[in-house]
Design a protein around this nucleic acid. Sequence first.
DNA 1: ACATTTGTAGACTGATTAGTCAATCATTAT
DNA 2: ATAATGATTGACTAATCAGTCTACAAATGT
Lengths: 186, 186
Amino acid sequence: MDKKEEILKTALKLFVEFGFHATPTSKIAKEAGVANGTLFHYYKTKDELILALYAHTKSRLTEYMYANASKDESLELVFKSIYTNTIEWAQENKAEFYFIQQFSTSPFYGLITPEEITKQAKPHLDFLQDGIKVAVIKPMPVDLLYTLINSHIAGINQYLSSQEFSTPKQKKIINESFQLLWDMIT
Amino acid sequence: MDKKEEILKTALKLFVEFGFHATPTSKIAKEAGVANGTLFHYYKTKDELILALYAHTKSRLTEYMYANASKDESLELVFKSIYTNTIEWAQENKAEFYFIQQFSTSPFYGLITPEEITKQAKPHLDFLQDGIKVAVIKPMPVDLLYTLINSHIAGINQYLSSQEFSTPKQKKIINESFQLLWDMIT
DNA sequence: ACATTTGTAGACTGATTAGTCAATCATTAT
DNA sequence: ATAATGATTGACTAATCAGTCTACAAATGT
């Protein structure tokens, strides 16, 4: 078992349940089954652990977003695939997705450099910019577009998490809400 | 000067800057210009202070949302008024709005009873339900509708806060994004 | 074989924190 | 006037926490 990963996994779980500062490093170490010093061997400070966890989780999401997105499909189908993948991942990794949101609306987010944020958003913005260039997506600032899409997804995810839906019902909601979003931006 | 209010004001500022647990009650008291004991005289625990601050801030927003919303206007105009008011308030009270979001995506949100959340959302849901009944708004679960609208507003607010826009430019963005939202739900 | 680095452990510490307490001060009611 | 209640103070404490330190074990390179 990889202790470094075990620490991240446990930290995620506890941060989501209790919050960043209400989760002592000692508790993370104990529940991860490692010694106190081991945690600080891998992560020099608690902040570093939190930032590493965010980077790790965010990249896992990004990877999944673009899974099986063949470039041959139409822009709409590619976009729908990304949309669906994102919501699927969020539903299957609720704690992870919640953690990303929790982190993003916390002072820790300020520790990430603007460059890193820009770099992270770049591929998505390029994709959207292309959609505008080929006159499929309405002309508007890509930043605005990007934010609207992200918020929409966050909203759908929140709704899906608020109750227990059967899988087909859930699929139906995702399809219909995608149509709402797609109609809004095209 | 009202010390109780001074404590809330200072707590808001510090929570937004440093986070809940990274803000000691001693610091709040000192910066609010009151003694340590005074803080605990008004709020038995730190949690109680945090919850009181959330309730206070949320109710200030709700109050502003429905300001000058005459019931004589069309549903669209009333809705637009609420929409515009909300974004205006968020822009003029950035720390407050950010605090609400920060609180909502933190474990503290779990301390609020479901009844309280339901009660809080009731008037908004009723308004939307009415819009569906008179066949102005598309038929869909009001919870979903409500979440989509909230997310949309959060997104627009985030975009407006990301750069400095001139007042007319800002008004234009609000109007256009309202149209996007309105077209999406009707 | 041996040296060097890397991983792991857990007791320990100095600093910090939420909350208490006993004592005044201010205000209001009788 | 006097009692009673509420407001305010700041020193104090018991608990907790992030991070250190020393020691040893495992792996890796030479």
